[in-house]
Simulated scan of single mutants.
Amino acid sequence: MNQIGRPLYFLALTLWVGALWTIGGIVAPTLFSALQDRSIAGAIAGRLFSIAAWLGVGSACFLIIFQIIDAGGQAFKRASLWVVVLMLVLTLASLFGIQPLLAQLKAEAMPREVMESLVRDRFAAWHGVSSILYLIQCALGGALVVLETASGRR
């Protein structure tokens, strides 16, 4: 299992963290700077963040299962396992808590744009919370890559 599992582990980790950094750091800012219509940019970015979240859920499940199979009970003593668990919790909070709330606020704002409506302040506050959680995930992902590459476990 280790000959196949370990490369798949690093592939899943790279895919998840790479998606977080690429979408949050390159794609979303580019959408908002390149498109005139901020609502279209927001809709596309929101869809991409959702895809990245589901990718994260799948990757996290694989990473957790692999670590437990690979190290048994010792996995629970590894910082890397707990970083993955924390990233998963943040992903799930965003996916099932904050994203539906933002969608509801957008729907309440209709037919106006959300930032031109009465729910603007609530939307901005929750969007800020979402952004902070995303940045924490990105930082944890970077720490996880460093932990795993420095650990010498191959």
Rank of each mutant, 00 (worst) to 15 (best):
residue 94 S to C: 02
residue 83 V to M: 08
residue 68 I to S: 02
residue 58 G to C: 05
residue 94 S to M: 13
residue 91 T to N: 10
residue 67 Q to A: 11
residue 80 S to V: 05
residue 55 L to N: 13
residue 90 L to E: 02
residue 55 L to V: 15
residue 60 A to Q: 03
residue 80 S to W: 04
residue 55 L to F: 04
residue 92 L to S: 04
residue 67 Q to M: 12
residue 92 L to D: 05
residue 65 I to C: 11
residue 57 V to C: 10
residue 70 D to S: 14
residue 90 L to A: 04
residue 95 L to M: 10
residue 76 F to E: 08
residue 61 C to L: 15
residue 78 R to N: 09
residue 62 F to I: 06
residue 71 A to V: 01
residue 72 G to N: 10
residue 59 S to A: 15
residue 77 K to I: 01
residue 77 K to L: 13
residue 65 I to G: 08
residue 67 Q to N: 11
residue 64 I to G: 03
residue 84 V to A: 04
residue 81 L to R: 09
residue 93 A to G: 15
residue 94 S to E: 02
residue 55 L to C: 14
residue 73 G to K: 12
residue 63 L to H: 07
residue 60 A to L: 01
residue 80 S to N: 09
residue 73 G to V: 03
residue 60 A to D: 02
residue 79 A to Y: 10
residue 56 G to P: 06
residue 88 L to K: 05
residue 80 S to H: 08
residue 92 L to R: 03
residue 69 I to Y: 12
residue 77 K to F: 07
residue 57 V to D: 04
residue 65 I to D: 02
residue 76 F to D: 05
residue 73 G to Y: 05
residue 70 D to Q: 14
residue 61 C to M: 13
residue 64 I to R: 04
residue 85 V to D: 03
residue 56 G to A: 06
residue 86 L to H: 02
residue 60 A to Y: 02
residue 70 D to G: 01
residue 67 Q to H: 06
residue 84 V to G: 01
residue 62 F to P: 00
residue 79 A to I: 13
residue 88 L to A: 15
residue 62 F to L: 08
residue 79 A to N: 13
residue 58 G to Y: 06
residue 85 V to F: 07
residue 62 F to M: 01
residue 61 C to K: 00
residue 72 G to H: 10
residue 83 V to I: 15
residue 57 V to H: 08
residue 63 L to S: 05
residue 95 L to E: 12
residue 59 S to D: 04
residue 73 G to S: 12
residue 74 Q to I: 07
residue 65 I to T: 14
residue 86 L to K: 06
residue 90 L to V: 06
residue 62 F to N: 02
residue 94 S to D: 07
residue 65 I to P: 01
residue 79 A to R: 15
residue 63 L to Y: 05
residue 86 L to Q: 07
residue 68 I to E: 03
residue 92 L to K: 04
residue 71 A to D: 11
residue 86 L to N: 02
residue 64 I to T: 12
residue 60 A to T: 04
residue 67 Q to P: 01
residue 72 G to F: 10
residue 60 A to H: 02
residue 75 A to P: 08
residue 70 D to T: 06
residue 95 L to C: 00
residue 74 Q to N: 14
residue 62 F to H: 05
residue 91 T to Q: 02
residue 70 D to N: 14
residue 79 A to S: 14
residue 57 V to Q: 08
residue 92 L to W: 06
residue 74 Q to P: 00
residue 75 A to L: 04
residue 59 S to C: 15
residue 66 F to C: 00
residue 83 V to F: 11
residue 55 L to Y: 02
residue 67 Q to F: 00
residue 56 G to H: 04
residue 75 A to T: 09
